[in-house]
Amino acid sequence: MSVIESKLAELGVTLPDAPAPAANYVPYVVAGDIVYVSGQISANADGMIKGKLGADMEAEAGADAAKTCVISLLAQLKAACGGDIDRLVRVVKLTGFVNSTADFGDQPKVINGASDFLVAALGDKGRHARSAVSAASLPFGVAVEIEAIFQIK
């Protein structure tokens, strides 16, 4: 088991198989030492995590949904690294989209669910630049979608 996967296991997380794309795009692109991972939607073993923050979902539940997105991002990263996720140098940037009402302003608190998990799992390698923005709706009615940029060796 890799160093990163061992740390994830300590946190109670096993990386799933990388999700297949839902449309006409690739799940990731490797360009030199940079991996661009397509947006991953909030989902777990029970299915998609749907909801609109500020209407039928609270920020804490949104943060939990964001964590599921980052687990899928790491699964895609592992696939992009040919199964060796320990090639990760650092998380460069996350862009988080939060399905929220016009008056909901806690998008950063929601995306903290992803950021906090990355730092817990990866230490300084997990510290990253970030955007957290509102979306009037997201695919399939999911609560959160996050895309990422990683540096690898």
Results as ranks from 00 to 15, higher is better:
residue 117 F to Q: 05
residue 26 V to E: 13
residue 34 I to V: 14
residue 132 A to K: 05
residue 125 K to M: 14
residue 38 S to T: 13
residue 128 H to L: 08
residue 63 A to W: 06
residue 129 A to S: 11
residue 66 A to C: 10
residue 146 I to H: 03
residue 81 C to Q: 03
residue 71 I to K: 01
residue 144 V to M: 01
residue 102 A to F: 05
residue 45 A to T: 10
residue 14 T to G: 00
residue 99 N to L: 06
residue 134 S to C: 07
residue 69 C to N: 11
residue 22 A to C: 08
residue 50 K to P: 09
residue 54 G to V: 10
residue 146 I to L: 03
residue 10 E to Y: 15
residue 134 S to L: 11
residue 104 F to H: 08
residue 100 S to G: 13
residue 94 L to R: 06
residue 27 P to S: 14
residue 9 A to C: 09
residue 42 S to C: 08
residue 110 V to L: 04
residue 137 S to N: 09
residue 112 N to H: 13
residue 17 D to Q: 12
residue 26 V to H: 02
residue 128 H to G: 02
residue 23 A to C: 08
residue 94 L to D: 08
residue 149 I to S: 05
residue 105 G to W: 08
residue 52 K to Q: 11
residue 93 K to M: 15
residue 94 L to Q: 07
residue 112 N to Y: 15
residue 6 S to A: 14
residue 21 P to F: 04
residue 62 G to E: 06
residue 147 E to N: 14
residue 151 Q to H: 14
residue 53 L to T: 06
residue 2 S to Q: 11
residue 47 G to L: 07
residue 28 Y to H: 12
residue 32 G to K: 03
residue 85 I to H: 00
residue 113 G to A: 04
residue 6 S to F: 15
residue 52 K to W: 07
residue 59 A to S: 14
residue 153 K to E: 15
residue 84 D to C: 07
residue 29 V to R: 13
residue 78 K to L: 00
residue 19 P to K: 00
residue 10 E to N: 10
residue 116 D to M: 11
residue 63 A to R: 00
residue 92 V to F: 15
residue 8 L to P: 06
residue 83 G to H: 03
residue 84 D to H: 04
residue 50 K to S: 11
residue 65 A to N: 02
residue 55 A to W: 05
residue 141 G to K: 06
residue 74 L to F: 07
residue 148 A to S: 04
residue 137 S to M: 11
residue 71 I to H: 06
residue 35 V to A: 02
residue 114 A to P: 05
residue 117 F to N: 02
residue 46 D to G: 10
residue 132 A to S: 13
residue 41 I to M: 15
residue 64 D to E: 13
residue 86 D to W: 09
residue 133 V to R: 02
residue 134 S to A: 15
residue 91 V to C: 07
residue 5 E to L: 02
residue 133 V to G: 02
residue 18 A to G: 00
residue 125 K to N: 03
residue 62 G to Y: 07
residue 46 D to N: 12
residue 135 A to F: 11
